[in-house]
Each structure stands twice: as structure tokens, then as C-alpha cells.
Amino acid sequence: MVDNNPSPEMVLDYLRAEQQSVLRQLSSPIDPSDVFRYGACIGTSIKVHSTLPRAMEHARTLINDIARNKRSVATGTVILADSMTQSKGRFSRSWHAPDGGVWGCLIHGNNLLPESRHFIPMATGVACCETVRQYVGDAATLRWVNDVLVSGQKLAGFLVESYTEPIHSEEFTLVGFGININNSSFPKELAGLALSLKQFLRHSIDLSDFTARFLAKLAWNFGLLYHEEAKHLKGDGYSGQDGEHFILSRWKQLSDTIGQDVVYGFDVMTAPQYAGYACGVDESGGLVIQLPDGYKKTEYSGEVRYQTR
């Protein structure tokens, strides 16, 4: 018996609703039919499990097994598990993944140009933040690059890794996701840092319904990556504010990073490098941090934590 069991039809219904809501907007710079068409592959195959050691590792095994049979895994395949026993975050951080959360991985066949792939982590964070806002409103924000916070505590985190399968050298992007929904106990070291939706709302929510909404948002935002790429290649520029990438514009609307005093580090938890003021993001999403002497440094990797003033 699996708790988190959304169907591809549920995902498609939410994706259609997204398309309809953009169609109703009078002056949207994006073509919702295009975005729908590009993104609709996400969630067409959903593989559910009661427990897995790690979803990313399971995805690699699945890709290799299918490649050995001279086939290719369907792009947009999603792997879900009710709980994971050996999940991890970036570097060697452990990620607590008991029953009640949304734990899994999206397999995306790599057919985006490098400049579009650059925006995958942001698109993933935007998709999750937009989904969470359907439940908590503006309390959900994005911390550069793609941590989803609710009331300043971490609700969701993502791992984006490239993978080249060894048989035919086909490239994939694996998007691992961990979203705290109905789980409510965290290890001691995460006390005050992590939060679940249940803790915030003070009631449980339908896990499969949340996951379907999230996958539809993921499909929409991946569709936007293709839409923006096609538009840019035609010479029409991007659709966001002042000609910037639409994902970046949307990220700016959802993020509370700009204007914060931050500590930056490649691995900020174990090796914070310096403190500064987050004063903006550049056109490719790099975070511009002003140092105390006024020098502005742009970071394209690593992570930040907010400092209380």
C-alpha cells in the first residue's frame, strides 16, 4: 500500500488548469499552448514505492536497466517513495525522509541548450514555491538558489544532477526533491530550521493531491524553459521583465533573498566564506553580493543563509 500515489491524469488536469489560467490573462507574454506542449511529458509515467534507499540512485539504475534493453527511459518519468532510508542533501548532508513527505526524483532527458539548463534549479524552486503558495500564500518564499522557506524555515530542498548513462552515453538531468508535507518530526540538529506544511497549517493535507499539483507546476516551468529557448533562438528575446528570462522574473517575484544580509559559502553550513548584502541577481541568475567595502561579487554556485539584523 502506497500513500503518495498521484496519477498522470491528475497531473495533466492541473497542468490544463494552469494553461487555462494563463489563457485568461489578456496580455501574457508567453504562449500557454506552447508551454503546455513542451512540459506535458513531465509526470506521464509515475513510479511509486513504499520505500526506497535513495530516489536518485534508483533513477540511475532504472536508466541503465532500460538502456541495456536498447531503449531509453521516458523523459519526464517521476519516481516517488513514501519514505527513504538513505536520502541525502548536497555534499554529504543527510536528509530526513520519513512517511508523510514528498520524496522523489524526476528524470529529464537532456535536450535543452546549456544556457537553458542553467535555469533548471531555479525552475524547480519556482515550481515548488508556487505549489506551496496555493496552501500558505505569501508565507512561502525562495532563498537563492532554490530552497523553499515558509516563515523562514526550510520546507523543501532540491538536488539537480546530470547523469550520462554508460551504455549509449545519453545525458539526463535528475531532479531530486524533498518536500516536508505531513511529516512533523525532525532530527534535533534541524530544530528551528526545518518545517512541514502540516506544522504550519496545523492539519494534514492530501499528499497525492499536493504531489500532482507540484508535478503540474514542474511540467509548466520546464515547459517555460523550452518556450523561452525557442523564443530566444527565433531572435525574439525572452518574455520576462525588461527582456530577462521568464523563470528569472518569476523567481524574483517569489524570492526574499534580495535585500537580505547573507552569509555565503560553497558549503555554507560547514564552511561559511564571507558575509555581505544580497543586492541583486544578474541575467543568468548569479547572486550579486555587496561586501562591506562596497565591492560587488557575483556568485554562480554555492548557497546563502540569512543573517538576522
Binding site: P121, T164, S301
Partner: peptide
């Protein structure tokens, strides 16, 4: 290789 929190072996 790490770029915008996307890690590539």
C-alpha cells in the same frame, strides 16, 4: 562541476 546548484560529474 557545480553551477547554479546543478551538479555534473
Amino acid at each position: 562541476m557545480s553551477l547554479m546548484k546543478r551538479d555534473t560529474p
